[in-house]
Design a protein around this nucleic acid. Structure first.
Length: 118
RNA sequence: UGAUUUUGUAAGAAUGUGUUCGCUCAUGUGGAAUAUCAUGAGAGGAAAGUCCGGACUCCCCAUGGCAGGAUUCCGCGUGAAAACGCGGGCAUGGAGCCCAUAUGUCCCAUGACGGAACAGUGCAACAGAAAGAUACCGCCUUUGGUAAGGGUGAAAUGGUGAGGUAAGAGCUCACCGGCGAGUUAGUAAUAAUGUCGCGCAGGGCAAACCCAAUUCGGUGCAAGACGAAAUAGGGAGUUGGGUAGCCAGCCCAAUAACUCCGGGUUCGUCGCACCUCGAAAGAGGAAUUUUGCAAAGUUUUGCAAAAUUAGAUAAAUGAACACAUCGUCAUUCGAUGACACAGAAUCCGGCUUACUACAAAAUCAUCUC
């Protein structure tokens, strides 16, 4: 129920390139930007319809330890609150400078608030 | 007690236990899957910087020359090599002792520590007349000579005394200092020298070019191999091409080869996870942990058995809650907050840098007896 499959993560650079299109909705959350994009689905199975997420943590936000932490926290927020994310949509989380000082709970709550506005 | 250095161990978003969820890999359940279940494993001393050296990879397994890079006191040892350890020498700096007819001795620290030569070139703030060739004041027999005196400076051509001179000067001499040769000591770096020679014809920088000796083929896992997918032998140019920066040598080709532009694809597997052998099943070995036995005698050794050996790829090693274990600091003294540097990316050995706590050892400083 709360599993996170590889099919629920964006793993190809072509998936990331699609977020450059005009249909992308984005919201600024202080220390991050969250983008969403409706995906063209072919099948009707779970893996075809499930929302997917990609996380971008550039070297600007800190060293490898903080980047790892941000990735894990955002992934965990996505996994435990999958119902908040729309079906057959792709989401892109871009971490910005200053996110390294936020605690795990602060990041989780900020992400969930941003998803409701999208 | 404090500081520094070295070594070791890891630990503050901690550790342990439990509950709930989750990730990666391996093995198993007849086969397959992004399904399911079970079992097991899953970040560091620097994983970092990518500075050296190697394994391994491909390129003509790599020969000669040029160019280019690297190294640089001596001896011994460890090591595949880089590098490290020990001892010695020299230079510079500091503390102590001795000392002024002196300039030694000892301890500590630091050191890219070959070469400044009738090999060559280059560089140098401020002050100063002048920093590599020069005359500001001064002195003299004044279109010139003079480095003794003054002044500047980190540094002005060795010091003291006498002779000498127009005034001066190693111009000459004595002593001291210096350089070279010889001799002696030492494996050597080097040191000593009442021997011989040289008046000492010019300072610093080689982490400036350079010179000398030794040494180095290039490429780096985005190496490289295989599969799948995709596509139009399209256009232009060159005439041998490949080949390390270049040349030679070497290899291949002869109507094809190469370069550029344009177009397409831009996925997977292996490499790659302790090692070796094997097609595979498997066999042998290594290391770690636990248990048992034995020996020494109190944490080591040996034997036996069992288990284990990180392997991701838009990046696994995690999240929430409860309980237990505590330490330091701050505050509003219920509690809350803070508590190092930092995340494997082909693998090893070094170096360097970042940095917290604890333990041990050494050195130094201070205090007490």
């Amino acid at each position: 129920m709360f599993r996170l499959f590889k099919s629920q993560r964006l793993r190809k650079s072509s998936d990331f390139e699609k977020f450059r299109s005009k249909d992308t909705r984005s919201i600024y959350g202080g220390t991050f930007v969250l983008k969403s994009l409706k995906r063209v689905t072919v099948g009707t199975s779970f893996h075809d319809l499930t929302p997917r997420i990609g996380i971008i943590t550039s070297r600007k936000i800190g060293n490898a330890v903080t980047r790892n932490r941000v990735r894990r926290v955002v992934r965990e927020a996505f996994r435990l609150n999958l119902k908040c994310f729309k079906q057959s949509h792709d989401y892109l989380f871009i971490a910005l400078l200053g996110i390294g000082t936020k605690s795990n709970k602060e990041i989780t709550n900020a992400v969930l608030n941003a998803v409701k506005l999208l």
